[in-house]
Structures are given as structure tokens and as C-alpha cells.
Amino acid sequence: MEKFLLNAPQQTEMKILNSLYAKMVLDKALRDFRIEQILKEIDKSLQYRNKEKFLRLTEELNFIS
């Protein structure tokens, strides 16, 4: 039992680190997905010559990147 108590802080730290790592992976995946969406929308705005949408999307892309 004493061993368990000595390892408790380490186990808590590992849970926190794992949680942070999972959040970082999820955040990156969501950001990459949004960048892909924006690039597709930029292509459409160029195809339809929509300057306002193009400028808005490129601004958002610069903000994310």
C-alpha cells in the first residue's frame, strides 16, 4: 500500500500529461481540417471570382496559420 501512495503523484502527472497530449493532437487535427476547408473555399471563390470571399478566407487562413 505504501508503494501505491508513493506512486500516486506520478500517476496523476501522467494522466495530466496524457490529457494534454490528447488535447494537442485533437487541436491539430481540427486546425488541419479547417485549413483544408478554407483552401477548398478559396478555390471556389477564385473560380467564381468572388473577391470579398477570397479576401475574407485568406485573412482567416493567415490567422489560423
Rank of each mutant, 00 (worst) to 15 (best):
Y21P: 00
I35S: 11
Q11A: 15
E41G: 04
P9C: 10
M24H: 07
E2H: 09
R31D: 08
R56Y: 05
S65I: 10
K28Y: 07
A29L: 12
L55K: 02
M14S: 09
K3Q: 12
R34N: 14
N50V: 01
T58E: 11
E41W: 02
A29E: 15
E13R: 10
Y48G: 00
A22K: 14
R31W: 02
K23G: 03
Q37P: 03
L30G: 03
A8G: 05
L39W: 02
P9M: 05
L57D: 07
F4M: 12
I16P: 00
D43H: 08
E60N: 09
K28H: 06
K23S: 08
L39N: 07
L30F: 06
Y48T: 02
N18P: 01
E36F: 02
F54W: 08
I42E: 11
L55A: 08
F54I: 01
L57A: 03
N7D: 12
L46T: 02
L20Q: 15
A8F: 15
F54L: 14
L57V: 02
R49D: 10
L46I: 08
D43L: 11
S65R: 14
L57F: 04
N7Q: 12
F4I: 06
K28R: 14
D32M: 03
R56C: 05
P9S: 06
T58L: 08
R31E: 10
M14V: 10
R31G: 01
V25D: 13
E13M: 13
N7E: 15
K51I: 13
E13T: 05
L39G: 03
T12W: 08
R49N: 15
L61F: 09
L6C: 03
A29V: 08
L57S: 03
N50W: 00
M1C: 06
D43A: 14
L46G: 09
L30R: 10
L17C: 01
K28C: 05
R49T: 12
K3C: 08
A29S: 14
K53W: 02
S19R: 06
I64T: 06
I35P: 04
